[in-house]
């Protein structure tokens, strides 16, 4: 699927410093892969904090994760996995020159991403009402562990940072829809769709790690 050289008549997209479309596509894709590595390390810092505190206070994680709603977490997992599928379908449509299909698939992905954020909002709101806030602001007394506030600091940092990534993804896909409507993409050039897709898969994968690590502890 990485051979876009079939249609070469339209070359406005080719930047002056590349020799051909292939080189430009390969470069962009490699760049995105490396960027994803940096993203993993960025989240890696939080995973490290998670692991360190979990090894110090294993019982804390058992107690505190009970406050998290497994049902809605699972729903969100399915929502994101579904959106990964639709973004892959969007790329497929672009490869086949089906611009209408591309736009429809992008809209579905955006819809799923928004659904994810809405569910996340209700989860946050429910906790904040109870007084489950990070660090020094923590005022909930339903968990019998003195470090419960730290668990929720980690929870909010991890899910919050992930949420920001989801929002960025939504923004990128809205931008792709506008570009697609202007007929920028075709089977010879769909690099932005491809690399946004890569990004979106990473956002999905990170959530697939977050869900069991935070919600499913027992």
């Amino acid at each position: 699927m990485s051979q876009p050289s079939a249609v070469e008549e339209k070359l406005e997209h080719l930047q002056h410093h590349f020799i051909d479309s292939d080189q430009q596509f390969e470069a962009s894709k490699l760049g995105m892969w490396i960027f994803l590595v940096t993203e993993i390390l960025f989240f890696g810092g939080l995973f490290a904090a998670y692991i360190v505190y979990r090894s110090w206070y294993p019982e804390l994680y058992l107690l505190a994760s009970e406050e998290l709603d497994v049902f809605w977490g699972a729903v969100n997992t399915f929502v994101l996995i579904g959106s990964s599928l639709t973004v892959a379908m969007a790329i497929r449509s672009a490869q086949l020159n089906q611009i209408r299909g591309l736009i429809i698939n992008l809209w579905i992905t955006i819809g799923l991403a928004v659904t994810f954020m809405v569910i996340k909002y209700f989860e946050y709101a429910e906790k904040i009402e109870k007084g489950i806030l990070p660090g020094a602001h923590y005022s909930y007394d339903g968990i019998a562990h003195e470090k419960a506030n730290i668990f929720f600091s980690i929870y909010y940092m991890m899910t919050g940072l992930h949420g920001i990534h989801v929002l960025v993804g939504i923004g990128l896909m809205v931008w792709l829809v506008f570009k697609a409507k202007k007929k920028v993409f075709h089977s010879g050039y769909y690099t932005p769709v491809e690399i946004t897709g890569l990004y979106w898969h990473l956002v999905d994968v990170i959530w697939i790690f977050l869900f069991p690590l935070l919600y499913l502890i027992d």
Binding site: T38, E39, L41, F43, G45, P134, G135, H137, I150, I154
Partner: peptide, 23 residues
């Protein structure tokens, strides 16, 4: 490989001062 870890560290430190997350 290394700079993202600095980024998250300083983000945590900023949050520490802004929201007292306490890590």
């Amino acid at each position: 490989l290394a700079t993202p870890v600095l980024a998250i560290t300083l983000l945590l430190l900023t949050m520490e001062r802004m929201l007292s997350i306490g890590i």
